[in-house]
Design a protein around this nucleic acid. Structure first.
Lengths: 131, 131
DNA sequence: GAGTAAATACGAAAACTTTCGTTTCACAAA
DNA sequence: TTTGTGAAACGAAAGTTTTCGTATTTACTC
């Protein structure tokens, strides 16, 4: 029996909307629409449709507040970050996170400061694991 | 004058094909098709279309070898990895690579070995920069 | 040159994503 | 209760990606 193929990843526009919701915590169609860049020029009904789809896909839930719907992510941004990294690592880095980081730290555009932060993060994690 | 909006990122299927080409170095439609998973069941003409599109988008070039075309990436896998990471970092990590790594090293699924490798990479880069 | 097996060229169907218009609904103000 | 305003519901148009069919071309064989 074949599954319907749910990629469990957000599309471009879905991610755009989730980003605003993660930032807001929760919000109405109007809230999200107002938060988009000036030049985005998306119709109200389009925004409503995106949120409806996100609800169908269970990335958000909604409750009613008076006559409007308030939408709220069911999936945290951090969880989605992890999911995206896993996907990228699988598709492009042989499922080897270290090689992903290798590519990142070999990027000349990366500042020394960022490198220092990264090392601190790794050290902290290694310390916690052993301690 | 508005640009047509070329995202310079590969679509799902395009990436699937580029991955095989990166692995092969170069190859014909048949070569790539044969390299796909058993259960992929893609028509020959579909594969040919994807490669044609990749050529239009200038991700590959082709030369003729007898009656067939041999396709070859114009963009290295490492360059595309860098590009993808930059995109993900921008869209989901506030354009802060360190926070991307933070999410990665906080993933419980990451092995201690991988962590060690990551630290070694960072150390090497820091050492080279200062030396 | 005619036959044929395999590849290319091209257009378009199918599937999915993004956008929007129209209708319906809910609430509030007169 | 009617009317106006803004939201929701829904379907579908528009845009993009993925898949494939048909026609044509190419190189090889006889």
């Amino acid at each position: 029996m074949r599954q319907k193929k749910k990629s469990d990843l957000l599309t471009e526009v879905e991610l755009e909307f989730m980003t605003e919701l993660w930032d807001l915590g929760e919000g109405t169609v109007r809230d999200v629409l107002d938060k988009l860049p000036e030049d985005r020029n998306l119709a109200y009904t389009s925004a409503a449709t995106i949120l409806r789809i996100l609800e169908q896909k269970e990335f958000v839930t909604s409750r009613k507040d008076g006559k409007r719907h308030v939408f709220k992510p069911t999936l945290g941004k951090d969880a989605y970050q992890t999911r995206s990294l896993k996907d990228l690592s699988m598709k492009l880095f042989d499922d080897t996170p270290a090689s992903l980081v290798a590519r990142l730290v070999n990027d000349d555009a990366l500042t020394e400061e960022a490198l220092g932060q990264i090392r601190a993060l790794v050290d902290r994690r290694l310390k916690n694991d052993s301690g």
